[in-house]
Design a protein around this nucleic acid. Structure first.
Lengths: 330, 330
DNA sequence: TTGTATGCGTTATCAT
DNA sequence: ATGATAACGCATACAA
């Protein structure tokens, strides 16, 4: 292995000079710089960042914890994160937590062990206490999903308003019997989307009917089953609001299997606008989050924190949009 | 920041003893070990891996380069990689290359700079020469997509046989006018799938018709457009084989828009069995790759290489499967 | 069983 | 403009 010493010897200068050239530091004559550069190239030298990182006590890497990479929802967000990271000289480590606290903790070790300069949580599994502990010691940002009480910055949308808008859209189309497919979890977004659904009903004089609610787990199958169950028990239903696109797609498939025409017999709205939403058959009406911007903003917040540690908690809510497609309007 | 020295001082022993406890090295009395452990806990000490990594000249991290995380095809493979990695004490860094050589090279710096102990390419963008250079100096494995000539191990399926099987399935259903939606790129898999298509036609006495071929770019839109074009120019077509599920889904959407019934008027086969294939409407007949196993195998190969450097090139071909669904058979 | 001391590759401070 | 050298946190060979 070839080190900075070898380069120094070969170039006939000190390691300090090599280091200066490597880091574009001032105080090196053009001549020397050029010469050193050529030696570096000739020896095919690559600086060993293990040394630099130890010395500088930083890695220029940041950790992104996401529950799964299967959900295309995260793809655009990650792209935003990566673009801003790259622009600022940071690398990004994507880590699948599988929604498993243990796995999440395992990856957080990378932070505690200084292998990462900061962390972005897409959907933290650890509780507020643990989150605060991380937030105190390290640069951290919550992105999309977040713990409300935690003293850690977050970037998100207003899930309440978004759900309200989705259900209002259905009501505007004349629907009164609107099913809800939600999830039984502790996500704030879930609670807020449920509340948006209820508030819209109430505001337009429709009574909330608990019989019209089913729970899934964000999977296609669970959306499918929930819909089958809804259609069996509550056949007056003419519309469904699902809190995720994938479950909404399951709902469409189920409705179709039951011989229902979409959107004539039943209208369906999802949430997230994943890349498959416009591809589906019928294409899916849904709430679009500004995914790319969310990612960019989260990374910007994180970099600010890394640069100036101290408590600069900042919460940012970005705008969403209702995208109307074939699953509600012909 | 609290270091091994602080722990040593607090525990009243030398740093060597702390280090031994940290690494479960022998030669520490049970008593001392217990005492040290309690001090570590009390001080909430986390070893700084920057120091350890420099000393050991390894990071226990491996790099996984994938063209995009948007394609759900990669999700299961990555899961396999991660599971085997974890079992062996390795962490995984997922990196999006966006199919961009520059971005790929940027991430490969992590390898050259010793921030990673090895690399798995999901679809290498760099050429054979560069690939060989990497393979010579570092542990590296190609996974799914690979450069044939490169002297770097790979794990994949037999794309030729798989495509052959898919087209044979269509022929068995009575189809004679079978369109092909492929891609114009340099992937070996593309070439092999095209050849499988042609060979199946020939073997069953059907002449290959260049008019029946269109090219996309793996995207939904490109599959959609390709199909629209096919249907406009070659209305005798009763079946389509697309070399990727996402393009096949675009094909279904296009056929549907043209008022064609699937599979009665037109049958469609994809490739990859992404998680959306069974969810689609109609569900998609496709070739399933043993994604999880592919991931596991790639990681096992890589670990073997890390442990015993030297040229142990090994190519592994795993079995595929034709999964018949609604898009070809009612 | 435990401690001492050296070095991993780099950067940064201080001299020159 | 350049060089000598200490220091980053840790693991390990060797001494005790």
């Amino acid at each position: 292995m070839i080190t900075i010493k070898d380069v120094a010897k070969e170039a006939g200068v000190s390691v300090a000079t090599i280091s200066r050239v490597l880091n574009n530091s001032p105080g090196v004559s053009d001549e020397t710089r050029k010469m050193v550069l050529s030696v570096i190239k000739r020896l095919n030298y690559n600086p060993n960042l293990l040394g630099r990182n130890l010395r500088r006590m930083e890695t220029k890497m940041i950790l992104v914890l996401l529950p799964t990479i299967s959900n295309p929802f995260y793809a655009r967000i990650v792209k935003g994160i990566e673009d801003v990271a790259q622009k600022n000289g940071y690398g990004v480590m994507l880590c699948n937590t599988d929604s498993d606290v243990k796995r999440e903790r395992m990856y957080l070790e990378l932070l505690k062990n200084r292998l990462s300069d900061g962390v972005i949580f897409m959907a933290p599994e650890i509780d507020e206490g643990e989150l605060n502990e991380i937030g105190e010691k390290f640069a951290a940002v919550q992105c999309c999903e977040y713990k409300e009480g935690a003293n850690v910055s977050h970037v998100s949308i207003d899930n309440f308003k978004a759900a309200y808008k989705a259900v209002k859209h259905l009501i505007g189309l004349g629907h009164k019997d609107i099913g809800l497919i939600s999830c039984k979890n502790n996500f704030l977004s879930t609670k807020q989307r449920e509340e948006g659904y209820k508030k819209a009903l109430i505001d337009f004089g429709i009574e909330f009917n608990p019989q019209y609610v089913r729970y899934g787990d964000y999977s296609f199958k669970s959306g499918f089953r929930a819909t089958k169950s809804l259609l069996a028990d509550a056949d007056k239903i003419t519309a469904i609001f699902a809190i995720s696109d994938i479950m909404a797609i399951g709902a469409i498939k189920a409705a179709n299997e039951n011989g229902l025409k979409i959107p004539d017999d039943i209208a369906i709205v999802g949430f997230d606008n994943i890349s498959f939403a416009p591809m589906y058959n019928p294409s899916l009406t849904t709430i679009s989050q500004p995914k790319y911007d969310i990612g960019c903003t989260a990374m910007e917040l994180l970099i600010k924190q890394i640069k100036e540690r101290g408590d600069n908690k900042e919460n940012i809510i970005l705008e969403h949009e209702l995208i109307i497609r074939e699953s509600t309007v012909k």
